[in-house]
Simulated assay, not measured.
Amino acid sequence: MEVLTSRILLTSSDPAALTDFYRDRLGLAIAREYPGGVVFHAGTSHIEIPAHMPPGQSGGDTLWLQVRDIRSERDRLAADGVPIGSEPETKPWGLVEMSISDPDGRTIIIVEIPADHPLRRDQRPPAQT
């Protein structure tokens, strides 16, 4: 399978509130709007809120969003009234993570990758000259 692009579809009993949260609270840029839905940019992926689809079970849905500065994002979100589920902390695997929830109760993990973390370093052996 060759995947050319991807997106996460988040259904909701209140698509307008969910759209407001991702647009106004998280500040995600809109990639496309269409009658009955909106698609947001989310790094190299997209988040779509299809108002024309019925809500599903949100219990297993989790979003993972990488940011440059988790502490300033935490302060910005808290100032905008977004409840912080867990404060930023360095996890045993080396990532700095915090969590919030969207209006439908989906967990959103906000992540900062420290400069010295293996995800930020080139793991290839040095080029031979």
Rank of each mutant, 00 (worst) to 15 (best):
Arg106Asp: 04
Leu28Glu: 08
Pro55Asn: 11
Arg120Ile: 07
Glu48Asn: 08
Asp80Gly: 15
Ala16Trp: 01
Arg7Cys: 06
Ala16Arg: 09
Pro125Thr: 03
Asp80Val: 06
Pro103Leu: 13
Thr62Ile: 15
Gly56Ala: 03
Glu48Gly: 03
Pro54Lys: 05
Tyr34Asn: 03
Val82Phe: 04
Met1Trp: 00
Asp24Val: 09
Pro118Tyr: 13
Leu4His: 11
Ser72Asn: 08
Tyr22Ile: 13
Ile109Glu: 13
Gly56Leu: 02
Val38Ser: 08
Val38Leu: 13
Arg76Pro: 05
Trp64Asp: 06
Ile30Met: 13
Leu65Ile: 15
Met98His: 15
Pro54Arg: 02
Leu10Tyr: 03
Arg121Val: 14
Glu33Trp: 09
Glu112Trp: 05
Gly43His: 04
Ile109Phe: 15
Gly85Ser: 05
Ser12Ala: 13
Leu9Lys: 04
Phe21Ala: 01
Ala127Arg: 00
Phe21Asp: 00
His46Arg: 11
Ser58Leu: 07
Ser13Gln: 14
Val111Gln: 09
Phe40Ile: 05
Phe40Arg: 03
Arg76His: 09
Arg68Asn: 10
Leu63Arg: 03
Gln123Tyr: 13
His52Thr: 07
Ile108Asn: 15
Thr5Ala: 01
Leu26Ile: 03
Phe40Met: 06
Pro118Lys: 12
Ile70His: 12
Arg23Ile: 08
Ile30Tyr: 07
Arg121Ile: 15
Gln66Asn: 10
Ile30His: 07
Met1Thr: 03
Thr44Leu: 04
Leu65Met: 13
Asp24Ala: 15
Pro114Leu: 07
Ser12Trp: 02
Ala51Pro: 05
Asp61Cys: 04
Pro92Asn: 03
Met53Thr: 01
Thr107Glu: 14
Leu4Ile: 11
Val96Asn: 09
Glu73Gln: 06
Leu26Val: 02
Thr107Lys: 12
Phe21Asn: 00
Ala78Ser: 09
Gly59His: 06
Ile49Tyr: 04
Arg32Glu: 12
Ser6Phe: 00
Leu77Cys: 14
Gly85Ile: 01
Val67Glu: 01
Ile113Ala: 13
Thr44Ala: 06
Ile110Phe: 05
Ile113Pro: 14
Asp122Cys: 10
Met1Lys: 00
Leu65His: 12
Ala17Leu: 11
Thr62Ala: 14
Pro88Val: 10
Gly94Pro: 02
Val3Thr: 06
Glu112Tyr: 09
Gly27Asn: 01
Trp93Lys: 07
Ala78Gly: 02
Asp20Tyr: 11
Lys91Val: 00
Ser12Val: 12
Gly105Glu: 05
Gly56Cys: 00
Ile108Lys: 11
Pro55Thr: 02
Ala79Pro: 00
Ile49His: 02
Leu4Gly: 13
Ala115Ile: 10
Pro15Thr: 04
Arg120Pro: 02
Leu119Ala: 15
Trp64His: 08
Ile108Tyr: 05
Gly37Leu: 10
Gly56His: 05
Glu48Cys: 14
Leu4Thr: 11
Ile70Glu: 11
Thr5Trp: 07
His117Val: 05
Glu73His: 09
Asp80Arg: 12
Ile30Trp: 12
Met1Asp: 05
